[in-house]
């Protein structure tokens, strides 16, 4: 199966729209939860090799705070919510009121870990429910798992499934920005990496044929 040949820019635009709807809802949920303005950038859909996946969020070596979960149901895949330690610390401080909390200085309190996990729960839930409404597919998130480590060590998990089929990934990437504090450090990413067979399912559900090239 070669995705490059079968999918046109039209298909990628559809994936972009899914990212738009999903992450739009997730950003609204995040704004409500934190009672802060969260801006979302127009999503990008990238067809990239594995090293480039790491580069999107700053390279394999960089330390990040991430929530990872499996998308289960009709169109399985992987979902990541990725933040810099500085940004994640801000979110934890907003949620817990613990002004001294910092992901740059371990060990982390259980409250901090579970608040990031809950953040992942709410965001993935709202992303998937809107994607589900749009596509009429049955989609639900697994229990989220959190890791604070290097980009490469974390994101490679999201590539395992598709690496058995391809040497590249289709990443539906949405950037969100905490409005209070601008700058590169304040950017977060939402990644959706559908398993290879899921693309067919998604396009079929929307009535878009995939065999025309």
């Amino acid at each position: 199966m070669n995705l490059d040949n079968r999918f046109t820019s039209y298909h990628l635009d559809i994936l972009k729209e899914i990212g738009n709807i999903g992450a739009g809802n997730a950003a609204t949920a995040l704004s409500k939860l934190l009672q802060r303005k969260i801006d979302m950038k127009v999503p990008s859909v990238r067809v990239v090799d594995f090293d480039e996946v790491m580069d999107i969020v700053g390279g394999a070596d960089r330390m990040i705070v991430s929530v990872f979960l499996r998308v289960e149901g009709d169109a399985p895949g992987n979902m990541f919510f990725i933040m810099s330690p500085t940004q994640a610390s801000r979110f934890v401080r907003y949620m817990t009121g613990d002004e001294a909390f910092d992901f740059n200085t371990p060990p982390y309190s259980e409250l901090a870990i579970s608040s990031v996990q809950e953040l992942g729960n709410i965001l993935s839930g709202s992303y998937l429910s809107s994607m589900s409404d749009f596509t009429n597919l049955d989609l639900y998130p697994s229990v989220p798992s959190i890791a604070i480590d290097m980009v490469g060590a974390i994101l490679s998990y999201g590539l395992l499934e598709l690496s058995q089929v391809n040497d590249y990934a289709i990443v539906i990437d949405t950037t969100f920005v905490d409005d209070v504090a601008q700058g590169e450090e304040m950017k977060g990413h939402f990644f959706l990496l559908p398993d290879p067979p899921s693309f067919e399912t998604i396009f079929t559900s929307l009535g878009v044929p995939t065999d025309e090239t």
Partner: peptide, 21 residues
């Protein structure tokens, strides 16, 4: 890089980043 390999002679060193599983 990930899913890649290479070789080096002294005085070069060889590195890979972000090994997880």
């Amino acid at each position: 890089g990930i899913a890649d390999l290479n070789i080096v002679h002294d005085p070069a060193v060889i590195r890979t980043s972000g090994l997880g599983s």
